[in-house]
């Protein structure tokens, strides 16, 4: 039996007095594609930010490859809050693509892709460059490598962001509504890249998305999040075509109507 690569065990998260995640239990298998849907404010972004270590949970445990993310054992074998070294070790398996791209504006497209492998993994620069060029070719941007982010369209920026994240060879990739800041005509090209990635395989993906058809197409599993709890989960057709809970039905109708 294969072990999950990521496990959320009763994860809670509060901002001040407001509890936005109320006990999330979630196992992600290696290579599994999970789509996360739910109304605005339900906690989708927070779930993946916790795994990227951009937020710290207020309760529960997250494990990556069976290792506790936020807690570690110190020399006296006591469980203490993870230090930077521990976080960096585990974080190496996780990658993320942001809604607003977050490219480095002072670097060219190629430099954006080369930075982390060169300085974090300390790989040979010539090798990294070769891989970066291949990667940028894969996302269809081989003619833009020497431009700066501000010279690209939104869709192109998001494809660079994906190439940049892929350069670190994560085992789990997180996507936070990566098409929602794009003009409608640019959404397709970005989804296409994600689709190719998903088909190619062995990388697990958690996608926060409002693109239901897309979720139906590529996800192995869909989770419906509502007010900080996973309200319903299952195979995409089960969730999207035959929803059980009233709230999910409601969400899906409202969603299709608003389009």
């Amino acid at each position: 039996m294969e072990e999950p690569i990521v496990q959320y065990k009763n994860i809670r998260k509060s901002f001040g007095d407001v509890e936005v995640l109320k006990g999330i239990n979630l196992d992600i298998m290696p290579g599994e594609k999970v789509a996360l849907i739910g109304p605005s404010g339900s906690g989708k972004t927070t779930i993946i930010r916790l795994l990227m270590t951009l937020e710290q949970p207020t309760g529960g445990i997250i494990e990556v490859n069976g290792e506790n993310l936020w807690l570690m054992q110190n020399k006296k074998n006591e469980l203490v809050e993870a230090d930077d070294k521990h976080l960096r070790k585990i974080r190496g398996d996780i990658g993320m693509v942001f809604q607003h791209f977050n490219l480095f504006p002072h670097m060219t497209i190629l430099e954006n892709c080369m930075l982390a492998p060169t300085i974090v993994k300390k790989k040979d620069k010539a090798d990294v460059k070769k891989t970066a060029l291949e990667m940028l070719d894969k996302v269809g941007l081989s003619d833009k490598v020497d431009l700066y982010p501000s010279q690209l369209s939104g869709g192109q920026k998001q494809r660079v962001a994906m190439a940049r994240a892929l350069m670190m060879r994560p085992k789990v990739m997180l996507f936070d509504e990566v098409t929602s800041a794009l003009d409608p005509e640019l959404v397709g090209e970005v989804l296409e890249v994600i689709r190719d990635l998903a088909k190619a395989g062995d990388m697990a993906m958690i996608l926060v998305t409002h693109e239901m058809d897309f979720a139906l197409d590529i996800a192995d599993r869909v989770l419906f999040l509502n007010e900080g709890t996973i309200e319903e989960e299952g195979h995409p057709t089960e969730i999207l075509v035959n929803p059980k809970s009233e709230r999910l039905k409601d969400f899906l109708t409202r969603f299709t109507n608003s389009r």
Binding site: R88, M96, F98, H100, N102, L103, A116, I119, V120, R164
Partner: peptide, 21 residues
Amino acid sequence: DKGQWEASTALNLSTAQKWRH
């Protein structure tokens, strides 16, 4: 932008590397 810090965390840069690069 705050997103610059977050992207560099996501790429696993160390604190010193975030500042410098």
